[in-house]
Simulated assay, not measured.
Amino acid sequence: MENLCVSLVGATGRPWTSSAISFPRSKRQSELNRRVIAAASMSRQEIKRIVSKNFVSLALIGGMSIGMLEPRPGQFAQHLGLSRWATAGIFLLSGFTLQDGDINKALEAWPFALQGLISILFITPAAAWLVMQIKLNPKELVTGLAIFCCAPTTLSTGVSLTQLAGANKALALALTISSNLLAVFTMPVSVSLWIGKLGIKFPASKLFRSLVQTLVLPFAIGKLLREVFCFYHPAESIDRHREEISFASALLLSSVPWMQISSSRSLLLQLDARNLIAALFLGIALHFMFLAVNMFLVSLIKTGSKEDDEASSRAVILVASQKTLPVSVAVVETLKAGEGSGLLVLPCIAAHFSQIILDSILVGLWNRGKED
């Protein structure tokens, strides 16, 4: 027994206490803590990777949610005309980052450009006739969606999503600018042909000036700034920051629907839930139809390498399947629709926001597929 007691005495002459006995447990706890910290670090990295991949979708959904919950900041921004400045900023950045090689790729992809223009200006507007055959009460819901079908492509969404998808951005820019300018002349004909005489006084000159100021001039200024900058500095100094510029473009893109839905919130809350659901369903179905048609049409075109054709195809699929809200609303506002004007605008709003969300998800799937 005495020998046992001596063996339990440490070098200091003190007995081996319970804290010393618990040393193995402390070691296990330290190892557990290390693993928890490592797991937390990996979780943060994983969250950062997921947010980075799905930044556009998250920004768009977040912006629209904020607009519905607290509309006053967005309404004030819209009142100041910041939505036009946001669109102009996207085209300014697009011109600033556009390389000469991108322009050459767009020129080589002229069959895709031709198909995209035909789809935007003639094929998708023909869907207005199909929409008008839908028996839905009130009738303004289908009439508003039919007007939306006749509109040109989106002013900023298609270009931004094309850039984020790594597709042919120059082709998307060319399609957006040319189709919106040409639609000033083709949209009145499409509305009259597929919908009928609605008493629309098409604001052609006003729209044309607005498009030049919002799309053409900012793009030209951005391209000019790039040429001046590259005269003194290598182009790589711009191109190495393409990811940061893409994020800035995505933020500008998400600010547009934030302002639009903030301004439309009162209208959305006043409407019957059944009308709102019907408008959303019609808008989603219509966009799926546009995507399917354009996917089929671009699959028929072969110009060069598989990689270049894929980049051009995705640019056309995105740009030619979307319709712009501001032009649709401008046309609706010229109608003497009285109390029904709100119902005419509703399907345009619903279709516009549904196409943004669906296409941002599509871009995320494309990017995920490239990584796999």
Rank of each mutant, 00 (worst) to 15 (best):
K302R: 13
D272K: 12
Q270T: 11
L286P: 05
S341Q: 08
D272S: 12
C348S: 08
I317P: 10
D309P: 00
V331G: 04
V316C: 06
V293E: 00
L335I: 02
I301N: 11
V332D: 00
M289H: 07
I284H: 06
G342E: 03
F290K: 12
V345Q: 03
A285D: 03
V327E: 15
L286E: 06
R314I: 08
V329H: 00
A311C: 13
K323R: 11
E310N: 08
K323Y: 06
A285H: 04
I277R: 14
S354P: 12
A311L: 10
M295I: 04
I356D: 06
A351N: 01
H352R: 00
S305G: 11
R314T: 15
M295N: 03
V329C: 02
A330C: 07
A311W: 05
G338M: 15
K323P: 06
S328W: 04
D272V: 07
V316E: 14
L286A: 06
F290L: 10
L346C: 03
P347V: 03
R274H: 10
F353R: 03
T334F: 04
T303V: 15
K302C: 14
E333Y: 02
L318F: 12
S305H: 07
F281G: 10
V329K: 01
T334P: 05
Q322Y: 08
L280S: 12
L343N: 01
Q355T: 11
V332I: 12
A292G: 04
V298R: 09
M295P: 01
N294Q: 11
I357N: 13
S313Q: 11
R314A: 11
S354Y: 07
I356A: 12
E333P: 02
L343V: 01
F296W: 00
F281C: 15
S312I: 11
S341E: 05
S321F: 06
E339V: 05
S341R: 12
V293P: 00
H352W: 00
F281S: 09
Q322D: 05
V329R: 00
E333F: 02
L325A: 12
Q355Y: 09
E310W: 10
A351W: 01
V316I: 08
E310F: 14
A320E: 10
L346K: 02
E307P: 07
V345N: 01
G304F: 14
K306Y: 10
L286H: 07
L346G: 01
V345K: 04
V327L: 14
S299G: 09
F281A: 13
I349S: 00
L335H: 01
M295L: 05
Q355W: 08
L286Y: 12
V331D: 04
G304M: 10
V327D: 09
R314M: 15
A330F: 04
F296R: 00
I349T: 02
I349Y: 01
F288M: 10
Q270V: 07
A292F: 06
L280I: 11
T303I: 14
L276C: 03
F353C: 04
I356K: 05
K323I: 07
G340M: 03
T334K: 06
S299H: 06
F296A: 03
Q322P: 09
V316R: 09
K323W: 05
L344I: 07
